[in-house]
Nucleic acid binder design. Structure first.
Lengths: 226, 226, 226, 226
DNA sequence: GAGTAAGCGAGACGGTACGTCGTGTCTTATC
DNA sequence: GATAAGACACGACGTACCGTCTCGCTTACTC
């Protein structure tokens, strides 16, 4: 994603140790001092790494953070299946899978669309409060607003895969007759996802379980009286 | 909003000329070279103003831009009523008022909620493409994501007043029986406003009149079959 | 000294109060924080005076300080005669007049040139240690090194009048046959005055009564054996 | 002399090129526009160097100038012996060595103290008129008056070595019976050096060969009649 | 198993912008 | 009309990072 320039460095000789240290430093700094005060020099110093090692492999601090956050997400995702296996057979299964990494695990399909959405959105609300997750995503989102190239990459690699899970679930609901057949799932999901995203990103309102429940209700049943 | 610090400067002595020049320079630079490359030194130089004059009255470049954009919006709003009077009596009235400053003018109330919303959202779509408007709002939104204090000010002074117009229109529709009486208008409006906002800000999808029409349909009638 | 510009201000309306306050502030600041950190703004603030009042009457902070110091010297000189009258008739007369302001009072003439010079130089040594005197003179001397116009004014108004006293005393000694008749007193005085000045100004050596006594000896009797 | 701060930079990596360019720029600016108008930014710009490169290695513009001038003196001193060899055997030898760098070359010892001193002081008078030499020394002297630390460094590194040459010559004269055995050479030299220094630095009188000849006469033979 | 070339840590470098301070000019209101 | 107050355009301050560069050092891969 960031290499393969003309005279690109030889990635087979790349130091795994440094890469990990850079990821860790970048994420930690964004959490601790915020994105604007996080500098490449600061990341290098904290990672115990030369600046050039960063410039060799990435093009900007946003690039570094995007990869670092991607890596964090993958780690988290890889961690969940194990939990799921370990926890198999016991009560509260959905609760469990909701809490962390539900995104890449798919949305539960109990046959009751409204219930499934409420569950997933409640889990998302909880997740949005984890600063280890919040600080970097806000930072990347902010950078993306003003830097279209990065913004599109952020959406493509992080956001869209999540949204696809909603598309799948909605399509399944459509087959089950719970959603109008003429509805485009990619648009439909925005009715509940975007309001939550906006409230979170722009502080336009409080984020609670009640709120997301309401969103699901309004979106499924419509604002107009039946 | 930005003065009244301890030992604050005497605002009666303030140079109106400089303030205007700073607003103009800030907006122009954000449009021309982008927010990150816009610097306080650059604004000062372009405005023909000393740096200290900026630091005396504002705390950061985001502060400057927020006020400048606010001022721009007010100017635009003040310009519309005149246009409306001049254009009174002719066809395409709504088109006209939709194009610019429809926000502060209130949402039309023809009795047909769906039609009114479609109209307003189409006008918004058009407006979002004006770079004089787009560049500063993206910049402020981006800054607000990562700087909560500014984010809240951005929302309170720029966003919320716009949203209130939707609240009013939805309440009127409720009274007319076109919206479920148990619906909270402040949440309801997010069903169509937030998706549009997200697509625009985060490049998560194309923005067209067809898209906003669809949003209105889904939101009013719901995703579930009737 | 610094006024009478083209459109010079009307000095009859000048505020005596402000002038005194400016002198006091300038001298105090030079003593307390040093000449380089003394600023016109600082002087104005401390004197409770507008900056323009300083710029109206003086051309630079060196100008202010020069006048302030001149004023201080005159005050000191005016104070001594009174002391002398009060102390008339008692022993230790020379001691007394040596301590302060001996400069403008003339050099004692007891008939013994060597003794008189030793006395006066010892008194000067003592005076050089008073910080109220040292700080401003160093400052003015320093400024004068690098600003010829001010340097010459400094010499003409402050230094040369002092040196003239030595010229007078040496001439008197010449008449008494204690100094070679072919000697130019204006040059001769430099043999003991300049070494002391240089040691003081440039920290090239310690300044003691023994040192000045030695200077007088070497200067009068010569370095070569008799 | 100016490095070895806490967390000092690695002087082995220092750019010789930049150092030379900074010396040249500093000296040139002091000559061209004067010391007070010489700024660190100006030096950096003229040297084609980042400001930080100056701040990394020096603490102030006076520091820079002191080192630059020291370097210039050493260069000059290194240049003279070659000239002397080249010029060996021809007339006007002393004239030659007097003109430049006589200081570090030692004072001639022809056996005639008066003649040797007259020669050296005349050469010094000539040298004091070279603006490449005058501007920086005045500047450093001025700074030293008001900044004791720098003043002492100026004296120790530049002035005192010169004075030591006089001490040596006077001691030799003492051994030859041309100077009173009880005379302290370090003080004695001030009788002719300090007057010249003061006239030069403070514009207290004209500087000519006749003047320095007179100083030598007065100092050696004394003011009192024999 | 020696030679070589790349990545690496470190950090100096030429720059740009920061936010602050002081300059000298100007304007306003007060006396 | 001089004054206290202080806003203003300007320019330098000393600092922080930028992105590039050069220096040994270590670590593979090649011969």
């Amino acid at each position: 994603m960031a290499s393969n320039n003309p005279t690109s460095p030889d990635s087979t000789r790349r130091s795994e140790r440094s890469r990990r240290a850079i990821y860790d430093a970048a994420l930690a700094l964004v959490v601790e001092i915020g994105y604007p005060k996080t500098t490449i020099e600061g990341i290098a110093a904290r990672a115990g790494v030369g600046k050039q090692t960063i410039y060799r492999w990435w093009g900007s601090k946003a690039d570094v953070l995007l990869e670092a956050f991607l890596d964090l997400s993958e780690q988290a995702a890889r961690a969940v299946p194990r939990e799921r296996e370990e926890g198999a057979g016991r009560e509260g299964r959905e609760e469990q899978e909701g809490r962390e990494g539900q995104e890449s695990q798919g949305i539960p399909d109990t046959g009751d669309l409204a219930a499934d959405l409420r569950l997933v959105l409640r889990a998302t609300v909880d997740e949005l409060r984890d600063p280890r997750f919040e600080a970097p995503s806000r930072a990347l989102a902010a950078e993306g607003l003003v830097n279209e190239e990065l913004g599109r990459r952020f959406v493509a690699t992080l956001l869209e895969p999540q949204l696809q899970l909603y598309v799948d679930r909605l399509r399944s609901a459509q087959e089950a007759g719970q959603v109008r057949p003429d509805v485009d799932p990619r648009i439909a999901l925005e009715l509940f996802v975007s309001p939550l995203a906006q409230r979170w990103l722009q502080y336009t309102g409080p984020i609670t379980h009640a709120y997301t429940d309401t969103l699901v209700d309004y979106a499924l049943n419509g604002l107009a009286p039946r």
